[in-house]
Simulated scan of single mutants.
Amino acid sequence: MDPPLHLVHIKILAADLLSLTVQQTSPPSFLRRGRTVARAELVGIVVSRDRREKFLRFLIDDGTGCVPCILWLNHQYLNANTSSGPSDSDPTAEMALNMSEEVRLGTLLRVRGKIVMYRGVIQIAVRDVVLEKDPNVEVLHWLQCVCLAKECYDLPPTQGAT
């Protein structure tokens, strides 16, 4: 039986993520060699950052390409006119705000989230962001991506039970 890839964050390189096959369903689904994937994990450098009231949009470059990412923020928490502090806010919104502070130009990040389509472009709806302090993490991620693709992700689907 094939491992269900749509249930996990697959470690993937930008070039592979951006070349996934898109099935025009509602919502769109994404295929890697005929197998559905829904979540991804990337490691790379922040090369673009655009913060708005309700979201933070940024690009992650891993050396094979640039992946657009979006981190949704709670606009009520960000509103400077509210008197409530972080303790009165939604904890998920507070976590998103804390993660958004880690996203700075030139930083090395690990990003995990759901693969989505926006205006015809594949992007990541970010679930979590981790600042990586060890520069070797990027090379280790590349190696893991290659190994996992060979051993898990790119296996042909099994044809019935034997």
Rank of each mutant, 00 (worst) to 15 (best):
Ile60Gly: 07
Pro28Ile: 14
Leu31Asp: 03
Arg35Gly: 12
Pro28Asn: 12
Thr36Gly: 00
Glu53Phe: 09
Val43His: 00
Leu42Met: 06
Val47Leu: 06
Phe55His: 11
Glu41Ile: 06
Val37Ile: 15
Val67Arg: 00
Thr64Val: 07
Glu53Val: 11
Gly34Thr: 13
Phe55Gly: 00
Leu59Ser: 12
Gly63Gln: 07
Arg49Ile: 00
Arg49Pro: 02
Glu41Val: 08
Val43Gly: 00
Arg33Pro: 02
Asp61Arg: 03
Glu53Asp: 12
Ile60Ala: 10
Arg49Val: 06
Thr64Asn: 07
Ile60Thr: 12
Leu31Gln: 15
Ser29Met: 13
Leu59Lys: 13
Val46Glu: 06
Phe58Gly: 02
Arg32His: 11
Thr36Met: 05
Phe30Thr: 14
Arg51Trp: 00
Arg35Lys: 15
Ala40Asp: 04
Glu41Phe: 03
Ser29Lys: 14
Glu53Lys: 14
Gly44Ile: 03
Ala38Met: 13
Ile45Ala: 06
Val37Gly: 12
Leu56Asp: 02
Gly34Glu: 14
Ser48Thr: 07
Leu42Asp: 01
Phe55Arg: 10
Ala38Cys: 04
Leu56Pro: 00
Arg39Tyr: 15
Gly63Glu: 09
Asp62Thr: 02
Gly65Met: 07
Glu53Pro: 01
Gly63Pro: 08
Asp50Ser: 14
Arg33Gly: 11
Arg49Phe: 01
Asp61Cys: 02
Gly34Tyr: 12
Asp62Ser: 04
Thr64Leu: 08
Arg49His: 04
Arg49Ala: 14
Ile60Arg: 05
Val47Tyr: 03
Ala38Ile: 06
Phe30Asn: 08
Gly34Gln: 06
Leu42Cys: 07
Cys66Phe: 00
Gly34Asp: 15
Phe55Ala: 15
Thr64Met: 06
Arg51Leu: 06
Leu59Phe: 12
